[in-house]
Design a binder for these strands. Structure first.
Length: 592
RNA sequence: GGCCCCGUAGUUCAAUGGAUAGAAUAGAAGUUUCCUAAACUUUAGAUGCAAGUUCGAUUCUUGCCGGGGCUACCA
């Protein structure tokens, strides 16, 4: 904020005048609640440059600031901390300067500095589950945060639509499906296909057990179960372009896509560009050949191509098989390059992928750097921890997952029953109510997931479900709804400018400080790819507002100037809540 | 074995190397003639262990202990 810049300069001036020393930086922090003041200068780091007693230095700087800076009202020094009280008029001036700003806190995209954010990237053999939800929410939110920080952003996903796991669902459907379709069964397409993925695994396990019973050892049985051999055969046919297999593949994938579309729409995420693995899995081989000539890669005797990363503390990693076919890494190299070809203004990419692939992305990024792409300097693996259940890991194969669609429905139902109990929705139509339950239910879920550091594992207990009270999405939505209620009741006579001679209530000042923090919080969240920073910021602001709301009468204030100021202050807080929550992909309700 | 991530109140989460480690929830106690009590106000309770760097360490370094992951010519 500009005040901090100004003050920083003034502190440097003070030190220069008092001690004839140039200070490189000045460290600020918000003053802790227990002390008097608004901002605090930490004196300790200066001791490196200025010899002396920190208390004395702090006091002298404080005296200088009071004399030379109009906004500084008072100072006090506690240990090595110089606490500065800022004049009310400064905050009121600040408020006047931003109160009518639309999208306050967002930076408009000006440059061609574009980023691509990849997230979701599901397999087309089963429906989305809670792990995908975490992925989707993180990726979408980071994309929105980057946009708000001034970047151009392309959201993308790569759909993993080929491979043995896809053939497993197809084969099981062929064998056991009896022609079942989404229409005939009433099942959502992705769920229908997922059902056959589970059915495959069941049949596979049965066959293994039979083979083991008949004397085969387990490892061999796992490789030679007839149904697995059939699936492998199907994959070969697919790769050869066998018309029947390809047509089945297209049919079942289309069911899955229809299902995914519904789920994405319900979660509220979207994409600017889709990539399909069936189109991209051959990419990358030419690049590897080029890289081989440039000496980035080397060839082993059997003809396979590798990169040696032992200098970087990693291992050797294969990039092309001895038969010349691609591995996962080859595809990823090719796909990254393809994206920059498709969108030449891309200057960086974010990959939202679980932390079990940390190593893979470390290697991928290194390879791209070694190949000499300038954009390779701006690659980020948005890595996140697993979502576990009390019973352990989620496994789609075994059907032990929290299904995304079920979970969303569950959240809506919980929101509904709480709302019904509170009974505040008189006059709302059924349709409006339904929309509200979705807003609240999803708000609870999204906030619950996004407020946590992505790196941490989440233990999700479906029995306890997600809270609607305390540090939660609904808590913040509720505050927003209350503010809207005030605005509806307030008369229209709006002040064009707030008198800066107004004396601020302590809570009002805290709110203004909170509002002031929003733009830098957005930037910080973008730099750190961290929705959690936005969530925590919003919570702090809202908590402060609720305390203000409780202590200070807004509409009941007799002084018209003050009343109008409080109404506008509330309105601005509401706008910031809405803007912040938009970055998390969470809606805010007019009533609740 | 090697490498990576995590370890903070009973539980779920915070804390750019800074002051007396913040919240929420569960527990105890209050606040509705007053703008929505999904709220507000009290209260009790925590840095895995051991060294080191520093004026100052939850944060950085090392070792150990716990939990998870990666370590495929799978994707």
């Amino acid at each position: 904020m500009s005040l901090q810049n100004d003050l920083g300069q003034k502190v440097k001036d003070a030190v220069k005048e008092l001690y004839q020393v140039e200070l490189p930086t000045v460290e600020f922090q918000p003053t802790r609640k227990d002390f008097e003041g608004d901002v605090t200068v930490v004196v300790f780091p200066m001791l490196r440059f200025v010899k002396g007693n920190p208390v004395q230095i702090g006091t002298q700087i404080g005296d200088y600031l009071q004399e030379h800076v109009a906004e500084v009202a008072k100072c006090n020094v506690v240990q090595g901390f110089l606490n500065i009280v800022i004049e009310d008029s400064y905050y009121l001036n600040f408020f006047n300067s931003i109160k009518d700003e639309v999208d306050y806190g967002y930076v408009k995209s000006t440059s061609n500095d574009a980023m691509m954010v990849e997230y979701s990237s599901p397999n087309t053999n089963k429906p989305l589950h809670l792990g995908h939800i975490r992925n989707n929410l993180l990726g979408y939110s980071v994309a929105e945060i980057l946009k708000a920080s001034g970047k151009k952003v392309y959201k993308t996903q790569i759909i993993n639509d080929r491979g043995i796991h896809i053939c497993k669902s197809m084969l099981a459907w062929q064998k056991f499906g009896d022609g079942e379709t989404p229409e005939s069964s009433g099942l959502k397409g992705d769920h229908l296909v997922g059902k056959y993925y589970v059915a495959f695994d069941k049949a596979y396990k049965e066959q293994i057990a039979e083979l083991v019973d008949s004397g085969m050892d387990k490892e061999k049985a796992e490789k030679e179960a007839p149904i697995l051999l059939e699936a492998q055969d199907m994959l070969r046919k697919w790769e050869a372009g066998d018309a029947e297999v390809v047509s089945l593949w297209k049919k079942m994938n289309s069911w899955v896509y229809a299902g995914f579309d519904t789920t994405y729409k319900n979660i509220g995420v979207d994409f600017d560009k889709l990539y399909y693995e069936s189109d991209t899995y051959l990419l990358g081989r030419d690049v590897v050949k080029d890289g081989l000539e440039k000496g980035v890669f080397f060839k082993k005797e059997d003809g396979s191509v590798w990169i040696d990363l032992t200098d970087e503390g990693l291992d050797e990693k294969i990039v092309l098989r001895s038969d010349g076919t691609a591995v996962y890494m080859t595809q990823d190299i090719g796909t990254a390059i393809q994206r920059v070809t498709d969108f030449p203004d891309i200057n960086g990419m974010v990959y939202t992928v679980g932390n079990e692939q940390d190593y893979h992305f470390k290697v991928l990024f290194l390879i791209l750097k070694k190949l000499g792409y300038s954009w390779a300097e701006q690659l980020y693996h948005l890595s996140y921890g697993m979502v576990d259940l009390p019973s352990g890991k989620m496994k789609s194969r075994e059907g032990t997952v929290v299904d995304a669609d079920d979970l969303i429905q569950n959240m809506e139902e919980t929101a509904e029953s709480i709302s019904a109990e509170l009974g505040k929705l008189e006059g709302y139509s059924e349709e409006e109510k339904k929309g509200l339950y979705r807003t609240i239910g999803l708000g609870a879920l999204k906030y619950y997931i996004l407020k946590v550091d992505p790196k941490k594992r989440i233990l999700f207990n479906p029995e306890e479900s997600v809270d609607f009270q305390g540090n939660t999405g609904p808590f913040i939505q509720y505050t927003y709804a209350r503010i809207q209620s005030i605005l509806r009741k307030a008369e229209n006579g709006r002040l064009s400018v707030v008198e800066t001679s107004l004396e601020l209530h302590e809570k009002e000042k805290e709110l203004l400080k909170g509002i002031q923090l929003f733009p830098e919080t957005v930037q910080l969240a973008a730099e750190n790819f961290s929705p959690a920073l936005i969530a925590n910021y919003t919570y702090d602001l809202v908590k402060e507002f609720n305390s203000f709301y409780q202590q200070v009468s807004i509409l009941g204030e007799p002084d018209e100037q003050k009343k109008q100021f409080r109404v506008q202050l509330s309105q601005k807080v509401g706008e910031v809540i809405q803007s912040a929550f938009r970055l998390l992909g969470i809606d805010v309700p007019e009533r609740m």
